[in-house]
Design a protein around this nucleic acid. Structure first.
Lengths: 161, 161
DNA sequence: CGGTATCCCCAAGGATACTG
DNA sequence: CAGTATCCTTGGGGATACCG
């Protein structure tokens, strides 16, 4: 990656979209709960058990995820059973799936279990394996070292002297 | 997303590549240090200042990143100046760039600053903007709701009763 | 089943001071 | 400049018990 911003005395990253995303999903259990939601988990107890966290923690994180609009809580009823609530991904939450896929594939590559990956992601239409990739608007695949970093409109100038 | 694993009593995600990735980069300052490294920051003080963390924290995280093989520490010398050390991304570290890009674009969409994004990522070859996208091996673009989740070889079966 | 209340522990991280 | 040492605060998270 060409480091066009490397020499940037006086530039601060106070406005950073990565940091603001991490303000929302920057903790382990939150991300693992989203993983579960993306795999189809809907019920409170399943979230806690599958992520491996206690109920109080699950309750707090799920509540926050609903407050942040990543999950929606809604009543549902299986035929013949009593109503219960379920947690489902909103659009806003679903748009974090590329983050989850990218984390998963790094782990598959660099921190894999001997037994191999526990899940395989397939394209519903054709069954082929799905990956997170970088691509430019011109349609080219982009490797990490082919990225140029340019200052954007929201880059803050701070005079330090 | 079709939830083929939703009804999975007895299945546990003890082998999860996302969780193992988060074991390495699952904390805020670690990810923000990698952001800085990917933007070209190399010196200790710059890492601490630009991420906005104290020196002791920066020292501990950078040391761990080197130990985990995401950053490499090596001496360098500007002409006429004394030697100093720098921290640079390894291949293993650079392969986390898609995670950073995906986090950034979610933040740009859902948690944007009024001033707009602070950086813009361009393809070095053509200057077009770069995004993280999902794509299948068949070459199709994949939306989050077009994903099928299949059990992989490493999925653990746990008999719970 | 789907949570809340309470208590306790520990790791992340800030502030400050100091060293090579 | 590039860290280490020390101290302290905060919040994430486990355990247990209880509630509608």
């Amino acid at each position: 990656m060409t480091d066009l911003l490397a020499d940037r005395d006086g530039w601060l990253m106070t406005n950073c979209s990565i940091a603001r995303t991490l303000d929302v999903v920057g903790n382990r259990s939150t991300l693992l709960l989203l993983r579960e939601a993306s795999l189809g988990t809907r019920r409170f107890d399943d979230f806690a058990a599958r992520v491996g966290i206690s109920e109080p923690v699950a309750a707090a994180r799920l509540k926050q995820l609903v407050a942040d609009g990543l999950l929606e809580r809604r009543p549902y009823q299986e035929p013949g059973k009593r109503t219960r609530d379920e947690y489902v991904l909103t659009d806003k939450g679903a748009q974090l799936v590329p983050v989850l896929v990218a984390l998963r594939q790094w782990g598959d590559t660099w921190a894999a279990d001997d037994a191999g990956p526990s899940v395989r992601l397939e394209h519903h239409d054709c069954g082929a394996e799905v990956h997170a990739v970088l691509r430019c608007a011109g349609g080219h695949d982009v490797e990490p070292d082919e990225l140029d970093v340019r200052p954007g409109p929201g880059l803050l100038r701070v005079d330090t002297e």
